[in-house]
Amino acid sequence: MGHEVPEFVVDGLVEQTPEGPRLIGTRCAGCNTLYFPQKSSCANPGCDEKSPQPAHLPAAGTLYSYTIQRYQPPSLFRIDDWQPYIIGLVELGEGVRVMAMLTGIEEDQLRIGMDLQLVTQPLYTDSEKGEVRTFKFAPTGKFAPAGESA
């Protein structure tokens, strides 16, 4: 069976495109500021237009900093087979920095400044929704461009 529209942890954050997954943010038509996630307005005090338009963010970035979440977060975070995981802060250009889980890399390979690309991966399987995915970043070239790594 081919891949249907994937189920994500929350609607409106990420979507699958022919070029691979893309984060959905907004760009202000007035001052050109790029935001993630989507905003209902523009927070730039110097912008009078405040005209947020949906926009894709770059799918490639660099690692700005990171940590390892060593203990299990509260139950609102659902994951199958919990174990400590890496959370990175990824610089995507135009000043946008996004936090996300990192995948396809071991702790001792982490280097601030390394190239990363957006991917999506299943977090858990829900009895009704089936496989539910979140967005992550992985070392560039680690996974196929479609980013649909298992």
Binding site: V9, S65, Y66, P73, F77, I87
Partner: peptide, 20 residues
């Protein structure tokens, strides 16, 4: 969002600053 997408606890935020 911070919970459902990545389970980022408060210490994770501070740790990212410390690592940087």
């Amino acid at each position: 969002l911070r919970w459902v997408t990545m389970g980022a606890t408060n210490p994770a935020y501070w740790a990212i600053e410390a690592r940087r």
